[in-house]
Design a binder for these strands. Sequence first.
DNA 1: AGTGCCGGGCT
DNA 2: AGCCCGGCACT
Length: 689
Amino acid sequence: MSATATRPVDIPAPLNIIYGTSRELASCSCGMMHLTKRIEEVRLLESRKSARLADSDTDFARLADVGSDRKRASSHSIDVSTFIGSRKRRPSSSNDSERSYNAWNDSTNNNNNNNNNSSHNHNHHQQQHHNNNNRQTSVVTSTQAQSPVAVAPVQATQTSTGGGSSATTTGAMNLSMTASSGGSEPQETVYMDECSAAMVLMSLSTPPKNPLPIHCQQSYGSWDDGISNRVTIGSPGTNSSQSSSSASWRSATPSPPLSDDPISHSAAWAAAHPNNHHNNHHQLQHQQQHHHHNNHHSQTHQSPGQVPVVDQRRFYHRQHHPYAVVHRSSSHRRHRGGGLSSSSSSPNNSPYDEGIVPDLDQERPRKKRIRSIENDEDYMSANNTGSSSDNDVKNGIVYKCTWRDDNSRQNSRSCGHVADTWDQVADHVFRQHLQRSRSSSFEDEEDEVDFYIDEMVKPACSPPTKSHWDMVRPRTEDPEYQKQLRLTAAANAANAANAASVAHLHHNYHNNYHQHHHHQQQQQQHHQQQQHHHQQQQHQHNQFNHQQHQQQQHQVHHTSNNQVATVAAVNSQNIDIMRDVYTVPSQANSAAVGKQFKVSPATAGTGGAQVATSSPSAQAAVAATPRPLQAHNSSANISLVTVSLGKMPHSPRRVRGETKKCRKVYGMEHKDLWCTQCKWKKACTRFND
DNA sequence: AGTGCCGGGCT
DNA sequence: AGCCCGGCACT
Ligand SMILES: [Zn+2]
């Protein structure tokens, strides 16, 4: 695919890291294959250096590529528009400053040029690929950017170092940053790349079943919280995968505004995990189980002054109680801010693995929190941190005995005793399984028992409802959204100057889609929205019927009055991209409106709506709308355009205005009277719409 | 078929 | 940059 990696262009020295591992990478994926190939070419070329030139810095590969650079720009996979756009000769390296409406397109091209030496996430197939490209476009300014470039180097590093030293990783990422950042702001780029890096890490440790990290598949947006990614990246150990997949990701999330929201909190995690998260969850449990095993070992057998005497049987139980194990280790992990601790590698040889002991006193409350997060089934209980049993009962939390008898362990049947309160189950465990009475004095006993108690949610919430809940994942903290707000503001500023209106484009991923809804929900009520939201989920391909909402959301961005927000959501491979287009009613033959966008009469299906502006140069910051899927003229003043990015081409072709152009006005026989642009078969500057 | 104009080549 | 034109989109 797009793994073009015109690598030599901008990525000189550091990429040597990759060089060394290119072969290994070749086996990783087809995309990498391509990279490999190119690099091999480079090597070949470099090997051809004569001794005289050996010390020269000349990039021969680059030289070799220069001749074909332009061609490649148009032919390589990066430029998705080639097969999506309506125009065939889409890619253009020229910056036609006259065509301000091309701002978006131009930025696209520029971006593509910058990233020309980059590889797309090769796991995406074509449709998704297109989305990638769109995303990339926005990336120019948005944090959402997923830099393919970043992916390649980081992945290479990870692979080559087999576990990855954070230093190397960082280096590679920095490299990728420089390579891909282009004109975008550095900080954002950092997020971008780290995000990519995090995803790469994920992918490296994700079972083959899920070749693509789940986060990559569905929720890029959820990854730009930067910090968490940083944490993840910084933890090179074997635990990095799980920590990045759940605990650290949440715990390190910088902005807390949602953390108090029980729904969003738990739903956030749920939203970040697609349907197959069960697999991951399972694996996660296993890993943590082992992890905890170590902890437990040291704790139980080395703790001084304890009566504990854990007999073999109980020990066995612990080993084989994933739930119980997960509780602790995960809580431990979480409270260490990202799961950086590793019991096996910890230099600290103290009896307790760091973090375990301090947790003991809060074991139970924390457990609830952890469980609710670890177990997607329990998302409902996310708000139960430190809550009492009353709360649990209220919230439908029950406690289940997970004790497994020796003779029944083969069939993995646990006791299954369920009670409303933890204490009840604890009593049960003491009496039924431990065959002793519960001595209230030993808190440790409670801890022991706690291992056999599983917290769960009463089966009150049906699965469909759950999926519904996890949709509500709000993301106000999403930097990209902030970024886009700024973008819009900038665009408006530019427009205010010439009273032109703005075509504002949004394209986001799934998360952002929800994020928008979250804003709605902030203005209105969450619960009211949810059903509505659900409906919209089902009609993602369709036009939104609630213009009011959209306007309510985005009117802030506008300077002129009768603009209409139009939104389209596209679902391709579970990645939804939404773009909002703000248009101004087209008023034919109005010279004053000459510098406005306008929406062409709709030709549904083939994408008739195009956005045009005839004021060149004035709207550099303005983005234009590529061909939408549908277009509607809902009224004289309001044009609603539903845009489908799935079919969205890259360059909006200028709308053919109603006004006659020089050619028609003067005729071929008076060609000399034409404006120059018309003479040149360019957009007419004299009779612009 | 005519028109508008994008993309790109040439100078 | 100026000029030109192939060819596409749309009428
Ligand atoms: Zn003209």
